[in-house]
Simulated scan of single mutants.
Amino acid sequence: MHIGVQELIVILLIAAVVFGGGKLAGVGKALGKSVREFREEVKGEESDALKEK
């Protein structure tokens, strides 16, 4: 199941109403940081697994 552009817009509008503009920016920043850290950890584990072989 894929989320289309229309569904994404609706979700963002609902989030803007619930959290407000200022808090939404903070939530986006925290989410971006979390995703970045997750990707770094996954990449680190993959490189560690390749080194062990």
Rank of each mutant, 00 (worst) to 15 (best):
G20A: 07
G26R: 13
G21E: 14
L24S: 10
V35P: 01
V35E: 04
R39C: 10
R39A: 11
L50V: 05
A25K: 15
A15Q: 11
I11D: 00
S34M: 14
L8N: 07
V42P: 09
K33S: 09
K33P: 02
L24D: 08
E37D: 15
H2C: 01
H2Y: 04
L13S: 01
S34V: 14
E46W: 12
K43H: 12
V35L: 13
R36Y: 14
E41W: 10
L13R: 10
E7H: 06
I3G: 02
E40L: 10
V10I: 04
S47G: 01
S47F: 11
A15P: 00
E37C: 12
K23M: 11
E37N: 12
G28W: 13
L31E: 12
A16L: 13
I11K: 08
G28L: 15
G22N: 11
E40F: 12
V17P: 07
L24Y: 08
L50H: 01
A49H: 09
K29H: 13
V17A: 08
A49F: 03
V27H: 08
I11Y: 04
I14E: 05
I9H: 03
A16Q: 08
F38V: 03
K33A: 14
V18C: 04
E41Y: 12
A15E: 00
R36S: 10
L24Q: 02
K43L: 09
I11G: 00
I14R: 06
E7W: 01
E7Y: 06
G26D: 12
A16F: 04
D48R: 11
V27G: 02
E46I: 09
E40C: 02
L12D: 02
K29M: 14
A30E: 15
A25T: 14
E46V: 07
I3V: 00
V17R: 08
K43C: 00
V35S: 06
G22E: 14
L24V: 05
A16R: 10
Q6M: 05
H2K: 08
M1W: 02
V10W: 05
K23W: 13
I3F: 01
A25W: 15
L8F: 06
F19D: 05
L31M: 15
